[in-house]
């Protein structure tokens, strides 16, 4: 059980980091008449052409403030609410298992939620791919926050898998 709790604790911490760490990096570029003027613009106008990073929360806030409330709500649900809810469900299931109680309903819920695992990372990746080609050749890349966030989802997936295994074992012993 120690392994499951360790995984859940690490998943919680990395989720917190992943939500606020830079997830997307915008790189302004200037391509006119098949010529790339980015480097010269970097020298001439460093302020305007500097690379900037956004966290998941900053991205959601920005979208909400720029009248993209639908997409903001979708990303908020899949990137913040869903992973937090999944970890809380796994935590309760683990506590039940500690008391040698079969997690039953909670584990069913976790299994259902498991089907949507990584969908949050997928949503961000789709977002990056969608807005990758900006006018003037500007680009968007995934930043280290995205990997921390994906790592958190991965840890919770492993915790869920181990938990299901333990619960099945307990159920077999009980029967």
């Amino acid at each position: 059980m120690k392994t499951i709790f360790t995984l859940l604790i690490l998943s919680c911490i990395t989720l917190g980091i992943g939500i606020l760490a830079p997830t997307m990096q915008t790189e302004p570029r200037l391509n006119i008449n098949n010529g790339d003027y980015t480097e010269i613009m970097n020298i001439l106008f460093p302020e305007e052409f500097k690379t900037s990073s956004f966290s998941i929360l900053q991205g959601i806030t920005h979208m909400w403030n720029t009248d993209s409330k639908g997409i903001a709500s979708l990303i908020f649900a899949f990137s913040i609410i869903f992973p937090v809810f999944k970890i809380l469900a796994l935590w309760i299931a683990s506590l039940n298992l500690c008391e040698s109680k079969c997690p039953g309903k909670t584990l069913n819920l976790v299994e259902k939620l498991g089907k949507f695992s990584m969908i949050d990372v997928f949503v961000i990746s789709v977002l990056i791919v969608t807005i990758k080609g900006l006018p003037g050749g500007s680009q968007i890349h995934g930043d280290w926050g995205l990997y921390v966030f994906a790592f958190s989802v991965l840890l919770s997936m492993i915790a869920g898998f181990l938990l299901t295994k333990k619960a099945t074992k307990l159920e077999t012993q009980t029967n």
């Binding site: 859940l8 917190g16 980091i17 606020l20 809380l88 506590l95 039940n96």
Partner: peptide
């Protein structure tokens, strides 16, 4: 008891988020 114990994962998520916001410029 279980409901109260949920404050542990929530607290850990907040700790991670808090540490990130403190450390990042």
């Amino acid at each position: 008891k279980k409901i109260l114990s949920l404050s542990v994962p929530i607290g850990l998520i907040l700790c991670g988020a808090g540490a990130t916001s403190l450390l990042l410029p």
